[in-house]
């Protein structure tokens, strides 16, 4: 089974270590433990998917820290990236 890495128990995203097709199952590892997750769309190597449903405006957490905020609801197993997450820092466009 293909592998994904969870960096911290607080994370709501995991990083894929292979290209993964829609409906493929992956093993999401957190240290010595792991869970099996179904991927809901084609997602590339190194990209992230949601470990649970993340509502619009909620924090995205990786490394146990906030890496941004969702701009729409993201369902479990879906791609989490620039199309549905925004940065909270360095936003001159929001001034």
């Amino acid at each position: 089974m293909k592998i994904a890495i969870i960096m911290d128990p607080k994370d709501n995203v995991a990083t894929l270590l292979s290209d993964v097709e829609k409906d493929e199952m992956v093993q999401a590892r957190l240290g010595e433990t792991s869970t099996e997750e179904r991927i809901q769309e084609l997602i590339r190597f190194g990209h992230k998917f949601a470990l649970s449903r993340i509502h619009k405006g909620a924090n995205v957490v990786k490394y146990g820290e906030i890496i941004g905020r969702t701009t729409q609801d993201i369902d479990k197993g879906h791609h989490v990236h620039v199309h549905n997450v925004e940065s909270l820092r360095g936003r001159g466009d929001k001034r």
Binding site: T15, R44, F45, G46, H47, K48, V60, K62, Y63, E65, I66, I67, G68, V80, H81, V82, V85, E86, S87, L88, R89, G90, R91, G92, D93, K94, R95
Partner: peptide, 26 residues
């Protein structure tokens, strides 16, 4: 902020985003 721009696109740069980096925080 003084530039009035979103940092994204400059940092993370397009190559970072293609590689899976979503935000400057990440």
């Amino acid at each position: 902020k003084a530039s009035g721009m979103d940092i994204r696109g400059a940092n993370p740069a397009p190559g970072n985003i293609a590689g899976g980096i979503t935000t400057i925080e990440e």
